[in-house]
């Protein structure tokens, strides 16, 4: 009896441990929560090609667009936690959505975080022709010209304008735009005087200028421009590309993924793609990423609550 139990345990061990030790032994699906061709997709594909080399198995990019990666996250949550289905997504889908929506089909605890690879240079931008060059100048101009237009991509991004307007007692009107291309159109066409940019402004250095960084740390691409926090309004929100696996993924798999991510961060091929997308490469370990995600969620919830935004 004891003998057979021991034997069973040995067989179980023998069956289990090589499977983990040998991870990965079949192709991995890297989900991208956006359609092909966008920044997230191109970063995901560049990462996949580095990971394919590093892990020795094909890493295939699967596009599952919808709700800024939310649809894909809701699906990822239900996938087996074996490391064969992973996802690269901007962190805010997890750390900001709960502040806006009452019903979110996933939460921060549904996932394990294998690390971060890039950070977004989120900033308040203006057309190059705007008659102001910095935050103070913008506030003065808006006071003299009430109702200047701020191009906002979503409900989250408009919070920055309403908070800046409230803090300085000025009048900023919102011009809703459709994604990054819509913002570029509104600024280049000079229909809006201000806009929220998720980093796309680096592609238009001669047509746009940065008024303030909307992150907690200064933007890597424009280190001379102060953050909105330094300017007296602690409403900066960070966003990174984070590598996500379903919760319960074994620690050694996470460690292996983290290693692959570190290799990608140093790989010239990945850096070239990231540079072309104006994404700043900034590697974070799995432990750091998990801590950042939780801190980011808390800080975002507090900012949105202070701004009076209720989850709907």
């Amino acid at each position: 009896m004891l003998k057979s139990l021991k034997l069973a345990a040995m067989i179980a061990l023998a069956a289990a441990s090589p499977a983990l030790a040998e991870w990965p032994e079949r192709p991995i699906s890297l989900i991208v929560g956006f359609g092909p061709g966008g920044q997230s997709d191109l970063l995901g594909r560049a990462l996949a090609s580095v990971m394919t080399e590093d892990l020795g198995v094909p890493v295939n990019v699967v596009n599952r667009p919808g709700a800024a990666g939310g649809v894909a996250l809701a699906g990822l949550r239900a996938m087996p936690a074996d490391g064969y289905t992973i996802m690269l997504n901007p962190s805010q889908t997890i750390t900001l959505t709960p502040a806006l929506m009452a019903q979110v089909p996933f939460s921060i605890d549904d996932f394990a975080y294998a690390g971060m690879i890039t950070s977004f240079d989120i900033a308040l931008v203006a057309p190059a022709s705007a008659p102001f060059d910095d935050y103070a100048g913008m506030v003065d101009y808006a006071r003299a010209h009430p109702g200047i237009l701020y191009a906002a991509l979503s409900a989250t991004t408009r919070v920055f304008a309403t908070e800046i307007a409230r803090a300085n007692d000025i009048d900023i009107e919102i011009l809703p735009v459709d994604g990054g291309p819509g913002m570029v159109n509104a600024i280049l066409g000079e229909q809006a005087m201000l806009a929220y940019s998720g980093g796309v402004h680096h592609r238009y250095p001669d047509q746009m200028k940065v008024i303030a960084a909307l992150t907690t740390q200064r933007n890597l691409g424009s280190p001379d421009v102060p953050t909105i926090g330094e300017l007296g309004l602690p409403i900066g929100m960070d966003m990174q590309s984070v590598l996500i696996a379903p919760a319960g993924t074994p620690d050694d798999v996470i460690a292996r993924l983290q290693g692959a991510l570190a290799v990608a961060a140093d790989s010239p091929a990945f850096r070239q793609v990231a540079d072309s997308m104006s994404a700043a490469v900034q590697f974070r370990t799995a432990a750091e990423a998990t801590a950042i995600m939780h801190a980011q969620l808390e800080s975002n919830l507090a900012i949105m609550q202070a701004a009076g935004v209720q989850p709907q």
Partner: peptide, 11 residues
């Protein structure tokens, strides 16, 4: 929009 991605990729 897709072409922009291809352009940027090649600097």
């Amino acid at each position: 929009a897709i072409l922009i991605g291809a352009f940027m990729l090649h600097g």
